[in-house]
Amino acid sequence: MEASTSTSLVFPPLWKRFGAYVIDLYFIFMLAYVLIVILPESIADKLRLVIFALALLYEPICNTTLGYTFGAFIFKFRVKDAANPAQKLPFRRALIRFVVKVVLGWISFLTIHSDTMRRAIHDRVANSVVIAK
């Protein structure tokens, strides 16, 4: 069952958020692999650092520009600014959110059920909220 607040925002359950996380990891690895395999070796060698940087910045860039990653798109939710859920998250905060998420891993998701807006630790640190579309 999905929870909502008095402002009628709907927050996705833990299984959807974790599912999107797994899809995004798979997507990033597959994209990097395909780029390295498709590109000629001489070009791939020169672009490995660029491909690695894009893979690392995939989530913050997607959340800032689109408001969602590929996994979030599949599960139909968006990452928004908690203070103003109509707005996307600024890049600096999206980057902070991502770093905390990477450092804490799945542990960050343990706080979702103790928060009325179902925010994980990385959401609280970045003042973000995940809203079902």
Rank of each mutant, 00 (worst) to 15 (best):
residue 120 A to D: 09
residue 56 L to Y: 12
residue 73 F to M: 01
residue 26 Y to A: 15
residue 89 L to R: 03
residue 31 L to R: 00
residue 12 P to F: 07
residue 102 V to M: 08
residue 74 I to E: 07
residue 56 L to M: 14
residue 98 F to H: 05
residue 105 G to W: 06
residue 122 H to N: 12
residue 23 I to H: 06
residue 74 I to G: 03
residue 53 A to W: 06
residue 121 I to G: 11
residue 25 L to I: 00
residue 54 L to W: 13
residue 35 L to G: 14
residue 83 A to S: 14
residue 80 K to E: 10
residue 21 Y to G: 00
residue 58 Y to W: 04
residue 47 L to D: 06
residue 25 L to H: 14
residue 109 F to T: 12
residue 76 K to R: 13
residue 80 K to F: 00
residue 52 F to H: 12
residue 68 Y to T: 03
residue 23 I to C: 07
residue 64 T to W: 07
residue 118 R to T: 04
residue 58 Y to L: 02
residue 9 L to F: 04
residue 69 T to H: 05
residue 36 I to C: 15
residue 87 Q to R: 04
residue 121 I to M: 04
residue 50 V to G: 12
residue 3 A to G: 13
residue 119 R to W: 00
residue 24 D to E: 09
residue 37 V to Y: 13
residue 97 R to E: 13
residue 19 G to W: 09
residue 37 V to S: 07
residue 39 L to P: 12
residue 88 K to S: 03
residue 103 V to N: 10
residue 133 K to F: 02
residue 55 A to I: 05
residue 30 M to V: 07
residue 10 V to P: 07
residue 60 P to S: 10
residue 90 P to E: 08
residue 95 L to G: 13
residue 23 I to Y: 07
residue 4 S to H: 04
residue 26 Y to S: 15
residue 74 I to W: 15
residue 110 L to W: 13
residue 123 D to I: 03
residue 77 F to N: 13
residue 14 L to V: 01
residue 35 L to E: 01
residue 53 A to N: 01
residue 122 H to T: 12
residue 45 D to R: 15
residue 6 S to K: 14
residue 12 P to I: 01
residue 84 N to H: 13
residue 132 A to Q: 04
residue 9 L to A: 02
residue 101 K to Q: 04
residue 19 G to H: 06
residue 105 G to S: 09
residue 48 R to L: 10
residue 78 R to Q: 06
residue 103 V to D: 11
residue 38 I to C: 11
residue 52 F to V: 14
residue 38 I to V: 09
residue 23 I to F: 12
residue 113 H to R: 07
residue 105 G to M: 10
residue 85 P to C: 06
residue 13 P to Q: 03
residue 8 S to T: 08
residue 80 K to D: 03
residue 76 K to G: 12
residue 54 L to C: 00
residue 28 I to R: 10
residue 73 F to R: 05
residue 97 R to Q: 08
residue 132 A to M: 00
residue 59 E to P: 06
residue 31 L to D: 11
residue 67 G to I: 02
residue 122 H to G: 03
residue 14 L to R: 03
residue 6 S to W: 10
residue 133 K to N: 06
residue 60 P to N: 02
residue 123 D to Q: 02
residue 48 R to F: 01
residue 57 L to N: 00
